[in-house]
Every structure is written in structure tokens, then in C-alpha cells.
Computed example of a mutant assay.
Amino acid sequence: MVNAEYINLITPITYKDYMDTILMLQDEKYAPFNKSGRGNTGYLFRVSPKLADFLFDIVEKTNGYT
């Protein structure tokens, strides 16, 4: 079980707009996306700290969070 808190974003994020960077920052093993940018099948994926920081930065910039 993973406890999570969901927040509705004012401006949704289109992850495909950032796919090149996501692929570069994700771990090679057990990654959420394959090399062609398609999602891998699975329940829960590890996200590298660099990828998490990148994604949080996008959310903050596009939604005015600080």
C-alpha cells in the first residue's frame, strides 16, 4: 500500500511534451516508460530523484505553485 495525496492541477501536464527529458532522467531498470516513450505495464514504478525534481518543477511552473 502506498499512501498518497492527490491535488487537482489548474493546468494539467502533458507528459509527452517532456518525454525526451523524462527518458533521459528515468532509471534504466524498472522504468515507467520504455525507450520509445510508451508506458510500461505495472502497478508502481520507481522514479529517480532527478526525474521527480524535474516533474515537480514542471508542475510548479505551469500551475503557479511555489
Results as ranks from 00 to 15, higher is better:
Arg46Asp: 05
Lys16Trp: 03
Tyr65Val: 05
Arg46Gly: 08
Leu23Trp: 02
Thr66Asn: 05
Gly39Thr: 13
Tyr15Leu: 15
Thr11Asn: 15
Thr41Tyr: 11
Tyr30Ile: 00
Ile13Ser: 01
Asp27Pro: 07
Phe33Arg: 04
Asp53Asn: 07
Tyr18Gln: 04
Ile58Ser: 08
Ile13Tyr: 02
Pro12Cys: 12
Phe33Gln: 07
Arg46Trp: 10
Gly64Gln: 05
Pro32Tyr: 06
Ala31Asn: 09
Gly39Arg: 11
Ala31Pro: 10
Tyr65Cys: 07
Ser36Arg: 10
Asn3Phe: 14
Thr62Arg: 14
Phe33Thr: 01
Ile22Glu: 12
Val59Tyr: 09
Val47Gly: 06
Phe33Met: 10
Thr11Ile: 05
Leu44Val: 07
Tyr6Ala: 13
Ile7His: 06
Thr11Ser: 11
Asp20Val: 15
Val47Asp: 06
Ser48Tyr: 13
Lys50Ile: 02
Thr14Asn: 15
Ile22Arg: 10
Asp53Ile: 03
Thr14Val: 13
Met24Gln: 14
Glu28Phe: 08
Thr62Ser: 12
Pro32Asp: 02
Lys61Leu: 09
Tyr65Phe: 15
Pro12Ser: 09
Phe54Asp: 02
Lys29Gly: 03
Leu25Val: 05
Ile13Phe: 03
Gly37Ser: 07
Gly39Ile: 09
Tyr65Ser: 04
Met24Asn: 12
Val59Pro: 00
Met24Glu: 12
Phe56Tyr: 09
Pro12Glu: 08
Thr62Lys: 14
Asn8Ile: 15
Asn63Val: 00
Lys50Thr: 07
Ala31Gln: 04
Asp27Val: 00
Thr66Gly: 01
Met19Ile: 15
Ile10His: 06
Asn34Val: 09
